[in-house]
Amino acid sequence: MERQSTGKLDRRRFLKRGLAGGAILIAAGTLPFAFRTTAIARRPRGPLRLLSIEEYAVLDAIAARIVPGDQRGKPWPSAYDLDCAGKIDGLMATLHPEVGSDFRRLLRLIESGLLATFIAGSPRPFTRATPHDQDARLEAWRRSRFALLRSGYQAVKRLVHATYYSSPEIYALIGYPGPPVVPPVPPAGGPT
């Protein structure tokens, strides 16, 4: 994939990048203290089904940057207003248990100051970084040469956007009138 995207990489360099990506994945599994310094800004709105409170806090912090509230004079709800992190927790609890484990590991990786030093030059955990730095880190993941980091960015990006934009509270803000009124008489008959 890296070869295809640049068209210039020889196999040796590709392997090197691939190995580096693998090393990051392994590192994610050996960060037992990644959450020791996690800042818990907001409490979950309900009981968590999959995530720990620290994992929830990281996800909540990510969601706050992916869909920042109240911008440019419009009353956009925040991700917390719409309980994006809580809804994602509930959704992930219904997927294959390994998917849930991978997701928790991803949150650990995003929070990791060690990795942040490596990719963004800042040792702070994600939850303790400034909004500006948090955006820069998400950008670094999004545009990373490591396929693994791009996948990680897409995972959180899609989950947050899915929960936020499927909320009826957003509809009017984006000019969506919502589902139409269903005609009262079923025209086709058949099973209900």
Binding site: R65, I66, V67, R142, K157, V160, H161, Y164
Partner: peptide, 8 residues
């Protein structure tokens, strides 16, 4: 929203 790129 899923399909559109970027964030923020």
């Amino acid at each position: 929203a899923l399909a559109f790129p970027g964030f923020g």
